[in-house]
């Protein structure tokens, strides 16, 4: 059983093509990061999977059923980006209401509130909640009824670092129990260690998808070596020049250290040459981060590229 499967899905809003031939799938026990600039189609993808809209073209199946079918939506948890909830009700009353709608046992409610750290505040009205507390309430709401598919839109907004770490730990636990999780976020360094795969969307199409290693391969971005010389920089520079066989690598000096960008395929040869030369005191290897890869695929169109409404 797949959590969801989009095959060549397109969606038109009025005349505009919002999604164009998207292929995406999520298996149980996997965390997928969904990234893209504003208006890239993330929200539309999520809404299609939730059954709020139907694709104009292509095939879509969710939990082996049809998106929007009550038997399917019952097993989906969703945290929208901005929920105010009902300010006059207490956290507990709100969660009770949603639990009844979802057909989840009411005894889950205090447990979930405890789990997200709202145990002390559950009987206070939501209008007294801070943004982070509302976010946690939303998270507890998404976890009602032990969902098989969890979709989180910017789950860490308003959360302090400790709460954020708690959240990611919780997501990992759920993943290990077999929940499929979709994570939309703009805080790329934050989510990088926790996602199994990432999908990068631009202009309604999937630009790249895969785990971080495969994304790096697809991007073919240089690896940065940061080298501390043992006997002065000039000797070291010669070693590097020899090893790169006149490829003319960019060498930057920084505080007596050298920074060299090498292509992934030449990385090991360069490291071996450096180590054999005996000119190296210390060596650091910096792989491109998720953020670097993201910027590579999105392109550096600047703000103009990131415009457009959600």
């Amino acid at each position: 059983m797949s959590c969801f499967r989009l095959e060549n899905v397109s969606y038109r809003y009025d005349k505009a093509l919002v999604l164009n031939g998207v292929d995406l799938r999520l298996e149980p026990g996997e965390i997928l990061g969904l990234f893209g600039h504003n208006g890239a189609g993330k929200t539309t993808c999520i809404k299609l999977i939730l059954g709020l809209m139907t694709p104009t073209q292509g095939k879509l199946s969710v939990l082996d059923g049809e998106a929007g079918d009550p038997h399917v939506t019952q097993h989906i948890g969703y945290l929208p980006e901005n929920v105010m909830f009902y300010p006059q009700l207490t956290g507990r009353e709100i969660l009770n209401h949603f639990a009844r709608l979802k057909g989840a046992p009411l005894k889950q409610v205090p447990q979930l509130l405890e789990q997200v750290g709202l145990g002390d505040a559950m009987n206070a009205r939501v209008k007294t909640y801070s943004k982070g507390m509302r976010q946690r309430l939303g998270l507890a709401q998404a976890l009602l009824g032990k969902p098989k598919l969890l979709m989180l839109d910017e789950p860490t907004v308003g959360l302090d670092p400790v709460a954020t770490a708690d959240l990611y730990r919780l997501l990992r636990k759920l993943r290990d129990e077999g929940t499929g999780i979709v994570l939309c976020s703009h805080v790329l360094p934050g989510v990088e260690p926790y996602i199994d795969r990432a999908a990068i969307l631009t202009d309604g199409a999937v630009k790249a998808v895969g785990d971080l290693a495969s994304l790096r391969r697809q991007a073919n971005m240089p690896v940065t070596l940061s080298i501390e010389p043992a006997n002065g920089t000039s000797a070291l520079e010669k070693v590097i020049a020899d090893a790169s066989a006149g490829n003319g690598l960019m060498i930057k000096k920084d505080n007596g250290k050298l920074q060299v960008d090498v292509r992934p395929s030449e990385k090991m040869a360069m490291i071996q040459a450096l180590l054999n030369s005996g000119e190296v005191q210390d060596l650091g290897i910096h792989q491109p981060t998720l953020e670097d890869v993201y910027v590579h695929f999105i392109g550096s169109g600047g703000l103009a590229h990131r415009g457009g409404a959600q």
Binding site: L52, P70, H71, Q74, I76, V83, F85, L101, G103
Partner: peptide, 14 residues
């Protein structure tokens, strides 16, 4: 306006 309509529609509720 409170954002709950979107949420409610993702529930098993027509």
């Amino acid at each position: 306006e409170g954002g709950t309509l979107l949420l409610l529609m993702t529930y098993p509720l027509s």
